[in-house]
Amino acid sequence: MTTPVLEIRNLHARIEEREILKGVNLVIPQGEVHAIMGRNGSGKSTLSYVLAGKEDYEVTEGEILLNGENILEMEPDERAAAGLFLAFQYPIEIPGVATMTFLKAAINAQRKARGEGELSTPDFMRAVKEAGAQLNVDSAMLKRPLNVGFSGGEKKRAEIMQMALLKPSLAVLDETDSGLDIDALQVVSKGVNALRDGKRSMLVITHYQRLLNHIVPDVVHVFSDGRIVESGDKDLALKLEAEGYANYGGEAA
């Protein structure tokens, strides 16, 4: 069996003395898309931040292996170069930095970290054009400062476009459906599905089942009070949608 892309073992993490993750166990084999569903406040975003290495969080127990390598000691940028990408629930504004400029800086920073040369401008432009077409990102949008004044849909499209360009081995999508109308949801989902190539793995975090009609997961996990409490196939999502999270304990959201 090949090494799973992601393996989380008994992960405990806290922020400001408060334990949020209380023993997460999760294995995502290569090429699979797993969904995590859970009520608001159950710790889903915390899991994504801890995976990406946000410094406010303290991991008190457990391990995270990315392609077999323990990443807990790595800086966020090292994890990114190692193949981890996080599509943010609330993408951050970078005033004055054109989206195009940001994309180029990110790609070249990762290439540099991996000891590869800078992408030539024609190669970069070609890649941007390709990814942009897929996600309806036009050159006018690429000239605007990243996420500044972007609509909800534009922000999420920009996130997926970055994922398309950075080609991670593991993509964590945190509530990518939030703030999207049905048309935007379709565009974004199409973009995500185009990146399912049988090798890339994804962790799709969502509160609603709706997204999973568009991005159909291989495995669905139910997340409650800082841990995974049940796992199943895509039908588990439908069951959750019908019955709500009430059966899984914790306070009502």
């Binding site: 800086e75 966020p76 994890r79 990114a80 970078i94 930095v97 400029t101 920073a109």
Partner: peptide
Amino acid sequence: QMFYCLQRGLNEEEAVALIVNGF
């Protein structure tokens, strides 16, 4: 902002330089 840039692969100095260039 820093975390966002780092997540995309920029190191701290590159992130600061990029944000300052935007500023």
